[in-house]
Amino acid sequence: MSHDPWQLLEDAATVLVVHAHPDDESLSTGALLASLSAAGIRIELVTATRGEEGEVVPGAIAADEDRPLDLIREREVDAAGAHLGIAARHLLGTAPALAPGASPRRYRDSGMEWIREGLAGPSPSAGSDSFTHRPLEDAIDDLVALIDHVRPDVVIGYDDEGTYGHPDHVRAHHVTAAACARTATVRLEVSSAPQGSISTSGGFSWREHPATGEAVRAAVDSYRTQLTVLGTDAEGIRIRHVGGQDDVVALRTGLRVGA
């Protein structure tokens, strides 16, 4: 097997990408996915939770809206996926991302709280049905079922830092690593280095995706409940999260082959 993650992707026909919440696919891998889909690679997305615990940008939901937040966020992820060229979307715990013979199960957003700037920790209010508290083996079994169904050439997931340390991201890393090991599927990890910078440590290989700016901006802008797009510059798409943190969605990705 090649140890060059980009060569593995160039040789792939189908890629499965694993994320924790709606919007993670655009914020963490939007430029990568847009680039891959433009190259004719089939992209399928599985999201572990529905993002039920996310705060909402004031005014983003109409006063007469009667849909729950999870359904609104489902529409947001569908819109974002269309901009990025995602061919199919799945929810962990819902067939085909469900272990054979198991009843459908829901992995609830675990929530988070900031430990310090740029680093998240678990929410003390996360319940027993949250992604981080449900049995790890259930989630692994469900992802194995999806891998068996999709038969991807490559699975893309978080590295062990889970971007900014969100507990659901870290959990998704462990689930993805175990499921890929069990199915002998090639796994690539996305670097958690700050989006606006390139770190050469950790064995990551970086690539720019300059032609994806329009698609990524449109995808990110689909998440009106979660963030506000401030503009585009040489660094990427500048956004403000619902909590007030300014961030940049860079048009570059660092990848390495998972151990």
Results as ranks from 00 to 15, higher is better:
3 H>F: 11
15 V>N: 05
16 L>Y: 01
17 V>E: 00
18 V>I: 06
19 H>P: 13
21 H>D: 13
25 E>T: 08
25 E>M: 05
36 L>M: 09
36 L>R: 02
39 A>P: 04
43 I>C: 08
47 T>K: 00
58 P>I: 10
60 A>L: 11
60 A>C: 07
61 I>Q: 05
61 I>L: 15
61 I>P: 01
70 D>F: 11
72 I>E: 00
73 R>M: 10
75 R>D: 15
77 V>F: 03
77 V>P: 03
81 G>F: 01
83 H>D: 02
84 L>G: 00
85 G>E: 05
85 G>W: 00
90 H>A: 06
90 H>P: 00
90 H>M: 06
91 L>P: 02
91 L>V: 05
92 L>F: 12
94 T>Q: 10
96 P>M: 08
97 A>H: 12
99 A>H: 08
99 A>D: 03
106 R>A: 09
116 R>V: 07
118 G>D: 06
123 S>K: 02
126 A>M: 05
127 G>L: 01
137 E>V: 09
138 D>H: 12
142 D>V: 01
143 L>R: 01
144 V>M: 03
151 R>C: 05
152 P>E: 08
155 V>H: 04
161 E>G: 06
162 G>E: 06
167 P>M: 13
170 V>K: 05
171 R>L: 04
172 A>Y: 08
174 H>R: 15
175 V>R: 12
176 T>A: 15
181 A>N: 14
182 R>L: 13
182 R>D: 10
183 T>M: 13
198 I>S: 14
200 T>L: 15
200 T>D: 15
202 G>M: 04
203 G>W: 04
208 E>P: 02
213 G>A: 14
213 G>F: 05
214 E>K: 09
216 V>T: 12
219 A>L: 11
219 A>S: 15
225 T>C: 08
225 T>L: 10
234 A>Y: 07
237 I>M: 10
239 I>Y: 07
240 R>I: 11
243 G>R: 15
246 D>L: 04
250 A>Q: 04
251 L>T: 04
252 R>G: 07
257 V>M: 01
